[in-house]
Design a protein around this nucleic acid. Structure first.
Length: 421
DNA sequence: GGCCGTTAA
DNA sequence: TAGTTTAACGGCC
């Protein structure tokens, strides 16, 4: 565990297990310290720890009252029993994830890059790094200037989204043949419900499930000349966690039985659960919870700290239970918002802000037009140089899609928060 | 409905 | 010197 908030996790990602964590963490710290971004992150971390303190108070209060604690324990037992009842091993999910996608495409098209440390992105932000670069601690979501400090030899390559999109279409075209309703998670990964395919092909058994994913990966490699990794399990969450375990170019199968799943979850870090990020990890750590087994051991503490929805999510996840069916509702699956944003040099006058907003509205209107959609709520979000965010929105009576209408409402919102600094 | 925070790719 | 963009969701008032 890091004593300071880790701005970029070392050894969290595939390819970063055998590296000098200490040294890299120190370099990142030196490069970050004192920056507005770092200060903001520190503040967020402090707020998370404060939250944990409140939780602890409530927990201790219940613990002191024997009767109350007994009731809490009984309630939690019920929740865990209910969760257990919903456990289902009948379906097979696969999570397929392209390895270091953008970097892999660039290296494929220029093999001379293969043994050099490569980062896709620029001095501002890196999207992906190859495994050579990861050995230096360089990784996605790290600004280029920090990556450069970790690895002075690092080769930066600009993003070429058009090319990645084309590869992605080929990739998805293969997945579609195994599950026409596959759930896409960005351009380089997807969740597939293989159950129907497996049954139809008489392959619904341990070997068959692994064979099918081997086949998918082989076909992806032939069609794109790129490797991908896979995870196979009885639900989406487990499949996703598994797909990360033998990266690159590997796959992990988790047998659908209670012993295997329980053993798998026991020592798993809570951070591996999709949906638990840096802040939740920090809150849980303050409560002495690091692994999924800790979540179960401290189920009452979880129940008392979080809302019903969140504690159910945490407990079910720690048991290795998650949804194993497609989001059925068309209504639920549709896009709910559309937005543009950009980072620019600080502005000062109201006029400058209005001008910038108008430009962004033009861009947004173009995309709205392409998608043939319209909306009723306009939200303006401003972020200061100190990373403080101000958000204000308004819902109107008529549908909006034109740039001029978007701009008019945004200007109105802007004036209501002016002066802004 | 409005505003804020978290997550993820 | 410098730390993105887009979208979704949950909590709280």
């Amino acid at each position: 565990q890091f004593k300071q908030p880790a701005l970029h996790y070392v050894a969290e990602k595939a390819g970063m297990q055998d590296i000098d964590k200490e040294k890299i963490q120190k370099l990142i710290m030196e490069a970050s310290k004192g920056s507005d971004y770092f200060n903001r992150e520190m503040k967020r971390s402090e707020e998370a720890k404060e939250k944990a303190k409140e939780y602890k108070k409530k927990i201790e209060q219940h613990q002191r009252n024997e009767k109350l604690w007994k009731i809490d324990q009984a309630t939690v037992k019920g929740i865990l029993l209910d969760a257990e009842k919903s456990r289902d091993f009948e379906r097979t999910w696969a999570h397929i994830d392209m390895d270091m996608f953008y970097a892999a495409v660039e290296i494929r098209d220029d093999p001379s890059l293969a043994d050099k440390p490569v980062a896709i992105g620029g001095q501002m932000m890196i999207s992906t790094a190859n495994y050579v670069a990861r050995k230096f601690g360089v990784r996605a979501a790290m600004p280029g200037f920090i990556a450069k400090k970790l690895c002075p030899e690092l080769v930066f390559i600009d993003c070429n989204f058009k090319k990645y999109k084309e590869v992605s279409i080929v990739f998805k075209g293969i997945l579609e043949q195994y599950d026409p309703d596959y759930e896409s998670m960005g351009c380089d990964e997807a969740n597939l419900d293989l159950t129907n395919y497996l049954i139809e092909h008489g392959l619904n058994h341990d070997e068959g499930r692994q064979q099918v994913v081997e086949e998918i990966r082989k076909r992806v490699k032939e069609a794109t000349l790129l490797t991908c990794s896979g995870g196979i399990s009885c639900n989406k969450m487990l499949a996703k966690i598994c797909s990360d375990m033998k990266k690159p170019d590997g796959q992990t199968y988790l047998k659908p039985d209670i012993e295997t799943v329980t053993k798998f979850m026991t020592n798993l870090s809570v951070r591996k659960i999709p949906g638990i990020g840096r802040m939740t990890e920090l809150v849980l750590a303050s409560l002495g919870i690091y692994t999924c087994q800790d979540v179960l051991d401290k189920a009452v503490e979880i129940y008392l700290s979080f809302t019903e929805k969140t504690s159910h999510f945490l407990l079910r996840s720690a048991l290795g239970i998650s949804r194993n069916y497609h989001e059925e509702d068309e209504e639920d699956a549709c896009q709910k918002s559309i937005s543009v944003s950009s980072t620019f040099r600080p502005l000062s006058t109201l006029e400058q802000f209005k001008e910038k907003i108008s430009e962004l509205c033009e861009e947004l209107a173009e995309r709205i037009d392409k998608r043939k959609v319209a909306g009723v709520t306009v939200t303006l979000e401003l972020k200061s140089v100190k990373y403080e965010v101000v958000q204000k929105s308004m819902t109107v009576k008529s549908y909006i899609w034109l740039a001029e209408d978007l701009a008019r409402y945004c200007h109105q919102i802007l004036e209501s928060v002016w002066p802004y600094d």
